[in-house]
Amino acid sequence: MKKLLLYLILTLIAFLMLSPLLWMVSTSLSKDSVIVSTSLIPKEFTLENYVKAWNFPRIFNKDVTFGTFFLNSIIVTVCLVIGGLFFDSLAGYVLARKDFPGRSLFFYAALITLMIPFYVTAIPMFLIVKGLGWINTYQGLIVPFLSSGFGIYMFKQYFQTIPIELEEAAKIDGYSDFWIYARVIVPLAKPAFATMGILKFLWSWNMFFWPLIVTTDIKMKVLQLGLTMFRGLNVTQWGLLTAGMTMATLPTILVYLLFQRYFTSGLIAGSLKG
């Protein structure tokens, strides 16, 4: 009986967590988007909103569809995840394992980056990116975020949980630090990589403000910016907007579902054991 109650409560919470999203999907599949329904099942089912949303960017440029935004988001996200994992884990490794002058300075520098509101750095950052000629380019969207203080911190914490004996053995055999990093540490830290990978994926996929200021060319827009197109000055097209939001959200949910089994185990040690 008590158990049943627990399931009931959990199912209710699960429903509450999902219902806003279900409502979003339902609205996107409904025919009439003027009148908002409270139902989670569309009354008149249609995919029209998706087709319209997909082709909507053609208004601005004939060659651009929602697919262009998808491609841009994918390119930016893949580069940020792979490059970011590499850079962060490299730094995290020496901070976790090595002693050298300025070690804690470097560590605190990484932590400090977490405390700086992005808006503090936005304008000078924009000027730098502009100076490099990176406006409307992929590197303008990617390079400034290739390393993150959070990633470095997470990797450092995780690497500290890996028994040092393995490394010492490799060291005695005469292997270099980079070899040890690549062949010993990285394979052992798969959960940490998966966890950070997911977090970086979500962050890159959902970033909004920076693409907003460094891309002006519609061909370079990412998905989150694409969504803003449906919100005109005077008229908002809710059907198209919810369809676009659903399309933009689907990949994040898929990626999470695919990798989630690594996710929890990665967090176990990563963020916690000091």
């Binding site: 699960a14 999902l18 999203l21 979500l202 939001m245 933009a248 959200t249 949910i253 989630q260």
Partner: peptide, 14 residues
């Protein structure tokens, strides 16, 4: 766990 986590993966703007 998945149900509880899904809101995290959705963009804040959306």
């Amino acid at each position: 766990r998945t149900c509880f986590y899904i809101p995290v993966v959705v963009s804040m703007v959306a």
